[in-house]
Amino acid sequence: MPLQELAPHLHRLGLLLTSLNQCQTLEGFFENFMQGLNAALLLQAAPDFIRSVGKIYVVVAVIVIVLLGFFVYLYFVDRRLTKLEEQIQDDE
């Protein structure tokens, strides 16, 4: 990948790190990040960056959502097992 193509990605990463650095609260972080993201989008000539870089981010977003779904499911199973473990311990 040529360096020019990497530049906007690095720019976004930089914005993310900056907003992480500046914000104490999660809410403030998101607000700051979205502002940064919007600024980054305006910097680029193309109307939407997902189209300009070949929509690959849509695919990445889909994979991330599916993985998050699996983790949420695992979290709920984990919670049920914890409850059962507590029951056994109470019994003993």
């Binding site: 939407d48 997902i50 189209r51 929509k55 849509v58 977003a61 889909v62 959502i65 599916v66 779904g69 949420v72 499911y73």
Partner: peptide, 17 residues
């Protein structure tokens, strides 16, 4: 759960398509 993920991933894609 898969169905909900399928619907949400479909919506993300639809938003950009």
């Amino acid at each position: 759960a898969f169905g909900m993920l399928g619907l949400v991933t479909g919506m993300v894609w639809a938003n950009f398509t």
